[in-house]
Design a binder for these strands. Structure first.
Lengths: 325, 325
DNA sequence: CCGATAGTTGTCAACGTTTACCGATTCTCG
DNA sequence: CGAGAATCGGTAAACGTTGACAACTATCGG
């Protein structure tokens, strides 16, 4: 029995009698034999590894991302390698090298890596396949899964405006994440439609983390007159704003309304529960993995990079109400 | 110039003149050439992949685990493959097959996989290297990193007892996690030392999640007379207990003290901030990765499986106080 | 100027699997 | 019953890199 025969039997290839195939499979099971993946990779010129890269994210976002991708990968041959990387914006070339050197078949790029043209250039130069999750620039490059961030931002801002708020503080996320700009653009639209001017002095910049969110929220709440509502660009910063309000003796939503973004776990465990926008991270990650794999498997044609939008949803919960008289 | 020479130059091996080495490196950089990892793996008989497996965990725990492991791996040749797996207890053999088939050099086993003897048997049979993070059984198998969970449980329970609480509700974690038993053992010790009997009717079982924690906390708080304190076996369930108390119109810590476990992010963003025990997850994951790699690299001697304990710390914050009169 | 020596470069085989191809056997059907 | 087809098993080569070892080339002392 040559190795060739074993290979054919295990791979359900033709030219092997059923009797032999069964015997081989039994023996393989008994010996816990598994074909050497390195040898398979060598000949197939693929590693069956997919990378996932992200940057200093809230834990629930990362886990959703991973679980979404993994739910597509499981029961397949592909494995998921995690490659977090900080400060992509300052050195996209290093991340590029890291990805190329890691021997991956392709990668899933979460923000802000998905919006680094330099990084995309490096990857394109080597024909390295990638899927971008919620990118905002260069929407003609690579596989793209997205949501309509502008519309989502518009909806949550319109919600506050409809409740009667006029003096609204805005906490932006990390400026290197393009999502930050998209959501802000949505706020702008909503204010425009309501005929309300955005007070630029009430727009402050955070970085999506609780700690910085708490600091800038304290700052906002110290203004005179005080804002009656805060729009935070993610839930962590929104929860921080609630904590800051509480520490100043304010009640939410009585004295202050707060709205977040993401529908992360903390938005539900917070008190009061956060009004937020559901970002379908899990589904987007699944879709990104699905389309990346399709591109890898049908190596012939690189599948048209059609952008696909996933639906978002405004979730009105207990942290927003009409402004105090 | 033969491939051999290129190999020697890039690997800083001897027998290459500096001039050639420099030229090769320049050319490699210019062409973005990277040696094929599959071929290297084939000859080295290693994949340079390390697996990380865990089960339905709180996001912050997973992220800490990953980041700890990754902080050891970065700048090295090893890559981290994530393999979450649910219900290990019900089918340890499947997880074993998954790990063996994934072509890994070794794996980090978080709870509850680290405590499945059947799984360890399967891995041992194939001489598959693994490091166990906070295991509670078979403490003579494999590389082990741990913390003194019993002592930690004892400290947090002693804290509540010292404040004067006598009617204390206990919310256990998922029974398939051995940590659940270890912490409970610590509670028992503290009660014993204080000469207080544990009221078994006030011991309820959760599964480490917020939702189930909320449900069982509501149940506990409905008892007559009501407990004056709740010991939850992790922070998610503790935060759920606070939410349940609030929904019943009780104040924390005025009417009810609540203590958690883990020092997860939510324990700091909750209000009031949680009294909890810091579990050095990140450091333990780093250590586990470090020792696993040491074992893989020094393939000759499998490094004595010395258990190593990492220090925990009781963090007294705002969610605990003396019981109401 | 020659031989020894150190330093450098090249050749061959091997890692474990699969693809391409070939020969042998069995089967089918006129 | 024999020709052709279908099926089965086997051999050689290839994937890209590295270890072992052979060969070549300067350099230096005598």
């Amino acid at each position: 029995m040559t190795p060739k025969t074993v290979s054919r039997a295990l791979n359900d290839a033709p030219h092997v009698s059923e009797a032999v195939r069964r015997k081989v499979k039994e023996a393989a099971a008994a010996l816990d034999y598994h074909p050497n993946i390195a040898a398979q990779s060598l000949i197939a010129r693929r590693s069956f590894l997919i990378g996932l890269t992200y940057e200093r994210p809230s834990p629930s976002y990362v886990v959703e991302l991973q679980n979404g991708a993994l739910s597509r990968l499981e029961n397949g041959r592909y494995r998921l390698v995690v490659l977090p990387f900080n400060h992509v914006a300052s050195r996209p070339d290093e991340l590029g090298k890291l990805l190329l050197r890691a021997g991956l078949d392709g990668a899933l790029l979460a923000p802000p890596a998905c919006d680094q043209p330099e990084l995309l250039d490096i990857l394109d130069r080597q024909n390295f396949p990638y899927a971008r999750i919620t990118p905002h620039h260069d929407l003609d490059r690579g596989i793209i899964v997205a949501m309509d961030e502008v519309a989502a931002g518009q909806e949550v801002a319109a919600h506050l405006l409809a409740l009667g708020h006029r003096r609204i503080g805005i906490i932006l996320g990390d400026p290197s994440h393009a999502a930050s700009k998209g959501r802000m653009e949505g706020y702008r639209q909503a204010f425009g439609e309501a005929g309300v001017a955005i007070d630029d002095t009430l727009v402050v910049t955070g970085d999506f983390t609780y700690d910085v969110g708490y600091r800038v929220a304290l700052d906002l709440l110290g203004r005179v007159p005080r804002p009656t509502a805060i729009l935070a660009q993610n839930d962590d910063m929104a929860v921080a704003a609630i904590a800051a309000a509480r520490d100043l003796g304010l009640t939410v939503p009585g004295d202050l309304s707060v709205a977040g973004f993401d529908n992360s776990e903390v938005s539900r465990t917070a008190w009061p529960q956060l009004t937020t926008v559901n970002q379908p991270v899990r589904q987007m990650a699944w879709d990104a993995a699905d389309r990346l794999i399709a591109a890898l498997d049908g190596a012939t044609e690189p599948a048209p990079p059609v952008r696909r939008d996933h639906p978002h949803e405004l979730l009105v919960r207990a942290s927003t109400a009409a402004p105090p008289d």
